[in-house]
Design a protein around this nucleic acid. Sequence first.
DNA 1: CGGAATCCAGTAGGATACTG
DNA 2: CAGTATCCTACTGGATTCCG
Lengths: 135, 135
Amino acid sequence: MEEMVVATSDEQPEGGRGFRPLPSNGICGRLGDKWTVQVLWHLSRAGAERLRFSALKKEIDGITQRMLTLALRNLERDGLVARYYFPEVPPRVEYELTDMGSGMLRALEGINSWLMENLSRIEENRRVYDDAEQR
Amino acid sequence: MEEMVVATSDEQPEGGRGFRPLPSNGICGRLGDKWTVQVLWHLSRAGAERLRFSALKKEIDGITQRMLTLALRNLERDGLVARYYFPEVPPRVEYELTDMGSGMLRALEGINSWLMENLSRIEENRRVYDDAEQR
DNA sequence: CGGAATCCAGTAGGATACTG
DNA sequence: CAGTATCCTACTGGATTCCG
């Protein structure tokens, strides 16, 4: 993350053999980083309910304050997450998915379930490959 | 890339509100890197036809020899791409998608088309966000 | 509480040169 | 041709400290 530029949509249509264009660099850049999707997911799990920064931090295992802040900022910038700031003392900030955000999450269903089904096979392939060429 | 470890499937089911588990870190790690998906896509465009290393390099704009090699090795290790080596002089190496590889590519359709539809809106959001808070 | 600012290590990935 | 092998740099992301 850290001031990512990302997501240039390269590739033009130019008729493949039944295949569509394709997203370029790392699917979309933002989707490739370590925390973004997890943040989106935890927000979606909350449903209509907004989540506070600290709640998110507690739920997302292993994330640091810094990384959560960066992930949220980027998502807010993209319009995938909405941020509500309440200037109280102590301050309170709540986050929720935008429609666009939950739309993106739904669009991830396909690759998500594919991964759930195939991860163990991939890991097996890696094991085989790794000790095949030993050295 | 460069000896990525990746793809630990964190997150357990634990009934959400209509949402499924979710892939962890950067979707799958491999999907998050810069070239992997592009390599898969160009291979799929070739259909049944295998592609040589140099053909891939020519088609994928901007990729270096090193990065193409790394991407292909990782994909081969995962079982997403098959490598055929012909010990001739000069050597010839051909690559093709495995069934698993094209399965993954199909699974990417959802997020792919979502991105095609929404990228411009995201970019617009970024522009707005960026010069809103000036500085 | 919810960050912002620093500092710092590891690594992705580009450029270039060499080789079987 | 299809890679290795180096070198090098920028960026990711963790830890820690400070602030309104």
